[in-house]
Design a protein around this nucleic acid. Structure first.
Length: 572
DNA sequence: TGGCCTTTGAAGGAG
DNA sequence: CTCCTTCAAAGGCCA
């Protein structure tokens, strides 16, 4: 079976292939390879489609899974191509990417080993060449004549090209974070993605939330505008630095968005202090970077900041301190996960309070397989990496005091149930359901489903050292990447994924067990943490049947579903 | 109006 | 090295 990227569909491992623009010769080789790959893409796609169709009736789950993956890849590629084309066209038109159908926008993934930009802000010839080679169909401004050319001249490429597709990543894995929900410029052929429709919304989606995850989806109210990749770089005088987020598009990966016009700042080691030096140099889009926010302006939650409001200056008599931008911390893995999953949890649960939602998300986070978590760790790592590149002099310490100091005493004194008590009922009601819902994005119980992969190990590079958080969380199942070596995970790992999830979802035992969990009828030994799964019965550790898997999953779900308060009480 | 709550992870300072 | 503190997002709640 053809491999579209030669990487076996390992979206994480693809990072290893990120292109480096350091070596011209090496890159030229890469380009040649990619061009060849690009040329063969259609053939490959056809092959994949045919193969998928021809074997769609096969009972071989593995084969089916591969085909499903292939379809997803195809769809991803098609979406990516359309996305880039549309994004570039819109940017060319007015520099303002407003399409409500494209909540994302092209961004540049800075290669691990190099920066595609020259110090003057222009794309390096190599980068431009590669970009055009990589995406020959892109409607690159100023390169219309090259649109269909397979051998573009670098000089024809515009420096305004805002997109550098993750150079050597999975060719079908766009590094764009768009909301699939909105990303449907062209309905994929039905035969390509029948099974990856969101069962709830019916909206096509890809099976890899970390790849195409709408971490920062548009607010239902709609997106006022899609930030220009550079718009955030320099704040307009008096303009809120982060208001666009209110527009519904709050996207940390705007930090990933760059184009040539801004990269000069980047390459010149942009620092927070530089911002105030360019009070009028906000990008024509007037869109700020989400990571930069004026401390004087509290972020509005719901996007009441229209572009018009941006022009409304709070006044020149603002304190200088107020003008100083507030560069926010890059989101960590869990924050990225929360961003993606919050809406889903809110939809599934009647809860709206973030504190309660976060509790649920915290448990879900623990229930994720390490592979799934690894995706977020990897994203977070990239986020940090890019953040450090964009703001070399920035320190998390800079933001100290941006918030009011929390009353640690109160927090320490108050047990979790203190706050969750009013919501406990809702949470408890929700939790069993939570486990029964087959949430494609979170892949509940994927600990059973997701096998250990090298990419997973890669994706948790910054193996977080145990922190106070972990220590303070009696329910913590040790989400740290080092748990990769925990026997529990290796024992529970299982080659195929989706089937067991559905098995679990529909399995009666899971329901009964999960239900019992909400009733606090668990044995103290089970409730009292820490309770490593390695201590569970061997039959549970190595499930041999769907029932066992479901039972084990339920066991896990049950354990995970325990409200913190219940566990705490039980431990007492 | 603005801080609190809650979650995990990252970072940096203190000892 | 370990521990502690703060912040990142989110939105309802409450003084």
């Amino acid at each position: 079976m053809p491999q579209l990227n030669g990487g076996g569909g390992d979206e994480l491992g693809a990072n290893d292939e990120m292109i480096s623009f350091k070596d011209e010769g090496e890159q030229e080789e890469k380009i040649s390879e990619d061009v060849s790959a690009e040329r063969d893409l259609d053939d490959v796609k056809s092959s994949l489609v045919n193969e998928s169709e021809n074997n769609s009736s096969s009972s071989d789950s593995e084969q089916t899974e591969r085909h499903s993956q292939a379809r997803a890849d195809i769809e991803s590629y098609e979406r990516a191509r359309e996305y880039f084309t549309e994004a570039l066209r819109r940017q060319q038109d007015g520099g303002l990417f407003k399409s409500p159908h494209y909540p994302g926008y092209p961004f540049i993934m800075i290669p691990d080993l190099g920066n595609p930009y020259l110090t003057n802000g222009a794309l390096s010839p190599s980068a431009r060449t590669y970009l055009q080679m990589k995406w020959p169909l892109l409607d690159v401004p100023g390169t219309a004549a090259l649109k269909d050319s397979r051998s573009p001249t670098p000089g024809h490429l515009s420096n305004k090209v805002p997109v550098v597709q993750h150079a050597h990543m999975h060719p079908l894995t766009p590094l764009i974070t768009y909301s699939n929900e909105h990303f449907s410029p062209g309905t994929p052929p039905s035969h390509l993605s029948p099974e990856i429709l969101d069962p709830k919304t019916g909206i096509p989606r890809t099976p890899h939330p970390a790849e195409l995850s709408p971490y920062y989806p548009l607010s239902p109210g709609g997106m006022g505008q899609i930030p220009h990749p550079l718009g955030w770089l320099v704040p307009q005088q008096g303009q809120h630095m982060y208001p666009i987020t209110a527009g519904g598009f709050r996207h940390p990966y705007q930090a990933l968005a760059m184009n040539a016009s801004m990269s000069g700042l980047v390459s010149s080691r942009f620092s927070p202090h530089m911002v105030s030096h360019h009070p009028h140099s906000l990008h024509r889009t007037g869109i700020p970077h989400p990571a930069i926010v004026s401390p004087a302006v509290k972020q509005e939650p719901n996007g009441h900041h229209s572009p018009a409001s941006h022009s409304k200056s709070p006044g020149p008599n603002k304190k200088e301190e107020d003008k100083k931008p507030h560069i926010k911390k890059p989101l960590n893995a869990f924050m990225l996960y929360m961003k993606e999953m919050r809406a889903k949890v809110v939809a599934e649960c009647t809860l709206k309070e973030s504190a309660a939602i976060n509790q649920i998300l915290g448990r879900r986070w623990h229930s994720l397989s390490r592979e799934e978590q690894a995706k977020y760790y990897e994203l977070a790592r990239k986020e940090r990496q890019l953040h450090s590149q964009l703001y070399p002099g920035w320190s998390a310490r800079d933001n100290y005091g941006k918030r009011k100091k929390r009353k640690r005493d109160n927090k320490i004194d108050s047990t979790p149930e203190d706050y969750s008590a009013p919501n406990k009922k809702l949470c408890v009601q929700y939790l069993p359901q939570e486990k029964m819902i087959d949430s494609p994005g979170s892949s509940h119980g994927s600990m059973l489903d997701s096998p250990a992969t090298p990419s997973a190990a890669l994706a948790s590079p910054a193996a977080p050292a145990p922190t106070h958080s972990e220590q303070a969380q009696p329910l913590s199942l040790t989400t740290k990447p080092d748990r990769q070596h925990h026997p529990h995970f290796s024992l529970l790992s299982k080659p195929s994924s989706s089937s067991s999830v559905s098995t679990f979802s529909s399995s009666q035992p899971s329901i009964s067990l999960a239900t019992s969990s909400s009733g606090s009828q668990l044995t103290p030994s089970l409730l009292s943490r820490p309770h490593p799964f390695s201590s569970l019965h061997a039959s549970l550790l190595s499930p041999s049947s769907p029932f066992h898997q479901a039972a084990l999953h339920s066991h896990h779900a049950l354990f995970q579903s325990q409200p913190l308060s219940l566990v705490t009480k039980s431990a007492d």
